[in-house]
Amino acid sequence: MFSGKGVVPWHEIGTVLDGVLTSGEAIKAAKLTWKVDQIPVFAAGNWAEAIPGFVANVRNDTKEVLGIVTDRYCVAQNQDVFAFADELIGTNKAKCTYETAGSLWNGRRVFMLVNMPKGRIVGDDYQPYLCLSNAHDGTASLQVFLTGIRVVCNNTLTAALHTAKRKISIRHLTNMEQRKDEALRTMGVASKYFHDLEVFASMLAGKKVNITKVLDKLFPASKQMSTRQVKSNLEVKELIKTLFKQKDDLQNFRGTAWGAYQAIADYRSNAEPRRKTATYADTKMARFLDGDDVMTQAQEIILELAA
Rank of each mutant, 00 (worst) to 15 (best):
K93V: 13
C131W: 00
L142A: 13
V81E: 04
A85W: 01
I89V: 07
A94E: 15
N57E: 06
N154M: 12
M116P: 06
Q79R: 11
V55P: 08
Y126T: 00
Y129I: 05
V152L: 12
T91R: 13
K118F: 06
T163F: 02
G107A: 05
I68N: 09
F84N: 04
T156L: 14
Q77M: 01
Y73V: 02
T163L: 05
V151H: 08
N154W: 12
V114G: 01
Q79W: 08
V152K: 12
C153H: 12
L161T: 01
A140P: 12
I121V: 13
S103C: 05
Y126Q: 04
P117D: 07
F54E: 12
G123M: 06
A101D: 00
Q77P: 05
V55D: 08
C96H: 13
V114S: 02
I89W: 01
T62F: 01
F111P: 03
G138N: 05
G90I: 00
V81F: 01
G148C: 03
E64V: 06
L130P: 10
G53V: 02
E64C: 05
Q143S: 14
Q127W: 02
V114C: 03
A94W: 06
D86I: 00
N115L: 10
E99F: 07
T147M: 13
T156G: 14
T147K: 13
W105Q: 07
D124R: 14
T97E: 15
N60G: 01
S133W: 00
D61T: 08
V114P: 00
A50F: 03
C153M: 13
N78F: 01
R108S: 13
A160Y: 10
L142R: 10
N115G: 06
I51W: 02
G123V: 02
Q127T: 04
W105R: 11
R150P: 09
E87N: 14
G148H: 04
A101P: 03
N78M: 00
N78V: 00
L157C: 09
V69D: 06
C131N: 03
G123L: 05
R120A: 13
T163Q: 09
V114A: 02
V152A: 15
C153A: 15
T100S: 13
N60Y: 00
R109K: 13
K118D: 14
D125T: 06
E87Y: 15
A56W: 09
T91H: 14
R109M: 12
N115A: 10
L142K: 08
V75P: 10
Y73M: 06
A94Y: 12
G138F: 07
F111E: 07
L104V: 01
G102W: 11
G138M: 07
V81Q: 04
N92F: 07
D86S: 02
N92H: 12
N60I: 00
G53N: 05
G53L: 04
V75K: 01
S141D: 15
N134E: 05
N154L: 09
V55Q: 10
